[in-house]
Design a binder for these strands. Structure first.
Length: 547
RNA sequence: GCCCCCGUAGCUCAGGGGAUAGAGCGUCGCCCUCCGGAGGCGAAAGCGCAGGUUCGAAUCCUGCCGGGGGCACCA
C-alpha cells in the first residue's frame, strides 16, 4: 500500500466515523495525510487527523482518535492502529500490503514517481540568461544546474517545459564588450568600464583569424560585434551543453528590437493608457502593480529603456502559448519581481503567470574567509573551472542540493584538492552497488520474487517505505519549485539502502539454496535501484553501473 | 531609510506546525571468513535574542541583533 492510498483510507475512515457520529464534515481538513514518524516505535506511518479535526468538530482529540482506531483496525492491509500522545494515530502495515510498493515500482519502471497534476501547465522556464560578454561564472552555473533540474522536476509531474536562455545582446554592455575586443586586437589597454579577462584576448585573436582585415574595415565595430558575440555564444552554449544543460530556445534581445516587437508592445501600452509621459520620458505605472516606483520605458532621448525589451519579451512568450513564465534570477535582480509582474498586469494579464524565483548568490571561500571574485587576483571561477575540478556530476549535485534561497559558499581549497567528499558519491555508490548486485544475481540465474510479504526485517520496511515516498517528494519539489528536495531525498534513500544491505543478505551464501526471501530481497533491490536511477535522472546526474 | 534572502552541530547545509531536530565533512571509539568498507554501528556537539498565535513553533506573526544582496531615463 502506498502512502497515498493509505492517506485515502484514513480520510475515508474519518469521513465515515464523523458522518456516523453526526459531526460536521467541514471540520475535516482537505489535506490530511500520513507521515513517517521519526521514531520507529510510533509505527510505520502516523496521522494527526484527529488533532487537526477535533476542535472544529467539537470533540476531544483522543476520543476522535479512538473512534478512528476502531474504524481502521482490521481494514485490509493495516496490521495495527493505536492512539498515542495527544491524539496521534500510529499505523502499522501488513508486510504483504507494504511490499506492494515494490511491485508498483517494478511495474512503473522509469515512470515511477511521475504524475500529471501539472499537465495543464505550458511552462517557459527562463534561466541563466547571462550576458554574452564573458564565460559563465559560478552564479550562472548554479542556475544552470538548479534550473535544469527544476525543468526536469516539472516535466516529471506533467508540465510541458521549454527551457529558454535570453541573450541581452542589445545595449551598452555589449558596446563595452565590443570596445574591449577592439582594444585587445589593437594591443591597447582595456578601456574604462571594459572587460579585461584573458578570454577577451582569445576572442579578439579569433576574430582577427576569421576576418583578417577586421581592424582596417570601415565596419570595424560591426565586424567585432557580429563575430565576437557569435564566438561568445558558441562558447557559452558549449559550456552549458558539456554541463548537461541544454536549452530549447536561445532568445536574442536584439531580435525584439529588429522585428519591431518592442515598438508594438510599447504602443499597445500607450494606447491602453498604461504609459504616461513625464519629463520627456514614457513611464509604466508599475506602482499600481506593487512596484516601489514607476519605471521609465522610453527614455527622454527616445530610446527604449531595458524594461521595454522585457515587456516585449513577455508578450512574445505569451504569444507562443505559455501559461506559466518562470524567471530564475539572482538576488541582485530581486527588484525585477515587481516590474515583471507589473508588465504582465499592464497587458491585462494575470500576474500569476509570471513567477520569479530569486536565488541567492554563490560566494567563494578560502581558509574560511570570503574572497571576492576578481580577475586580477585570479579568483574568477567559471563553469569550466568547477567542472574541471570536481566533474559534472559532483558540480551539478552540490549546486542543486541546497535551496536557492540560501546563499552558497564554495571552498576554493575544495576545488583545488578535487576532494571526493561529496554526497553525490554516497548516492551513486548505492546505485553502483545495486548494479553490481544485479550482475551477480543474473550470474546465479536469480529472478526477482513476488513473495514480498517475506520482507519483514525493520530495515526492509524502512527501505520500502522510503521508496514509497518518492512520488510525493517529486510532487512537492515541483509544486514548490525546489529541486533540492529530490537530492536530499536520494541521500535518505541511499542511506536506507546501505543500512539494509548491511544487515540483510540478498544473494545466497556459498552453496546455499536460493529461497523466496532471497528473491523477494532481489525484487526490493531492483526497485531501489530504479528509484535511485529515476531520482538521479531528475537531477541530471549520472547513475553509474560501476565506480 | 525602504525592499528581498539568510541566521540550526566545529564547517557546509536539510528540516513548507506535530512526538526524542537530521545528513555530509571534521573529531573520538568499534565492525571485514563470502553480495563493492566510496559502507555500517556508537560518542561528543546545535535551533541568534525577545515577545505573540496554537493543544503543539526550528517552521507562522511582530520587534531587535547579525550576515548577504538590491533600491538609475545602466543593462
Amino acid at each position: 500500500m502506498t502512502p497515498a492510498l493509505l492517506a485515502d483510507l484514513v480520510r475515508a475512515a474519518a469521513s465515515d466515523v464523523m458522518t456516523r457520529r453526526g459531526l460536521d464534515l467541514a471540520a475535516l481538513p482537505a489535506d490530511v495525510g500520513v507521515e513517517r514518524p521519526r521514531n520507529p516505535e510510533h509505527g510505520d506511518y502516523a496521522t494527526n487527523v484527529a488533532m487537526r479535526t477535533a476542535k472544529k468538530a467539537g470533540v476531544s482529540p483522543r476520543d476522535l482518535a479512538g473512534w478512528l482506531v476502531e474504524e481502521l483496525t482490521g481494514k485490509g492491509g493495516i496490521a495495527s492502529a493505536e492512539i498515542a500522545g495527544p491524539g496521534f494515530i500510529n499505523l502499522r502495515l501488513a508486510t504483504d500490503a507494504q511490499g506492494a510498493i515494490v511491485s508498483e515500482v517494478l511495474a512503473a519502471g522509469d515512470a515511477y514517481g511521475t504524475g500529471d497534476e501539472l499537465a495543464d501547465k505550458n511552462v517557459n522556464l527562463e534561466f541563466v540568461s547571462a550576458n554574452p560578454t564573458g564565460p559563465l561564472h559560478l552564479g550562472g552555473t548554479r542556475w544552470a544546474a538548479a534550473g535544469d533540474a527544476l525543468g526536469r522536476v516539472l516535466t516529471a509531474r506533467g508540465a510541458k517545459v521549454t527551457r529558454e536562455y535570453y541573450f541581452n545582446d542589445a545595449g551598452a554592455q555589449i558596446n563595452r564588450f565590443v570596445d574591449s575586443l577592439v582594444a585587445a586586437a589593437k594591443g591597447e589597454p582595456t578601456p574604462d568600464n571594459g572587460y579585461g579577462g584573458a578570454y577577451i584576448h582569445d576572442i579578439a585573436a579569433q576574430v582577427l583569424a576569421a576576418e583578417p582585415g577586421a581592424l582596417e574595415s570601415p565596419d570595424r565595430d560591426e565586424v567585432f560585434r557580429r563575430v565576437g558575440i557569435d564566438l561568445m555564444f558558441v562558447e557559452i552554449k558549449q559550456a552549458l551543453h558539456d554541463f548537461g544543460t541544454d536549452f530549447d530556445v536561445w532568445f536574442h534581445e536584439q531580435s525584439l528590437h529588429d522585428s519591431g516587437a518592442v515598438e508594438t508592445a510599447v504602443n499597445r501600452l500607450k494606447t491602453s493608457g498604461q504609459l504616461y509621459e513625464s519629463e520627456g520620458a514614457w513611464w509604466l505605472r508599475s506602482t499600481e502593480f506593487g512596484d516601489d516606483k514607476d519605471r521609465v520605458v522610453i527614455k527622454s532621448d527616445g530610446n527604449p529603456a531595458y524594461i521595454a525589451g522585457d515587456i516585449a519579451y513577455f508578450l512574445d512568450k505569451r504569444s507562443r502559448g505559455f501559461n506559466l513564465c518562470i524567471y530564475m534570477l539572482g538576488a541582485d535582480h530581486h527588484g525585477y519581481v515587481g516590474r515583471l509582474k507589473a508588465a504582465a498586469a499592464a497587458f491585462g494579464d494575470d500576474p500569476a503567470v509570471v513567477e520569479v524565483l530569486i536565488g541567492q548568490l554563490v560566494n567563494l571561500v578560502k581558509d574560511g574567509k570570503p574572497v571576492r571574485m576578481s580577475k586580477r587576483a585570479g579568483t574568477v571561477v567559471t563553469m569550466e573551472d568547477l567542472v574541471e575540478a570536481v566533474g559534472v556530476d559532483a558540480a551539478r549535485y552540490s549546486l542543486i542540493r541546497s535551496s536557492v534561497d540560501s546563499s552558497l559558499d564554495i571552498d576554493l581549497d575544495l576545488l583545488t584538492k578535487k576532494s571526493n567528499d561529496n554526497p553525490v558519491f554516497y548516492v551513486q555508490y548505492a546505485h553502483a552497488r545495486l548494479a553490481s548486485l544485479a550482475r551477480n544475481a543474473a550470474d546465479l540465474g536469480m529472478t526477482p520474487g513476488t513473495e514480498l510479504g517475506l520482507l519483514e526485517h525493520p530495515r526492509e520496511g524502512d527501505l520500502i517505505r522510503t521508496i514509497g515516498e518518492f512520488p510525493a517528494v517529486l510532487a512537492s519539489a515541483a509544486e514548490l519549485r525546489e529541486p533540492h528536495r529530490v537530492a536530499r531525498y536520494l541521500e535518505t534513500l541511499a542511506a536506507a539502502y546501505h543500512k539494509f544491505y548491511d544487515s540483510c543478505r540478498v544473494l545466497p551464501m556459498g552453496d546455499e539454496e536460493i529461497s523466496d526471501l532471497h528473491r523477494a530481497r532481489l525484487a526490493l533491490c531492483v526497485a531501489a535501484r530504479q528509484v535511485l536511477a529515476n531520482g538521479l535522472a531528475v537531477l541530471g546526474v549520472s547513475a553509474p553501473e560501476r565506480m
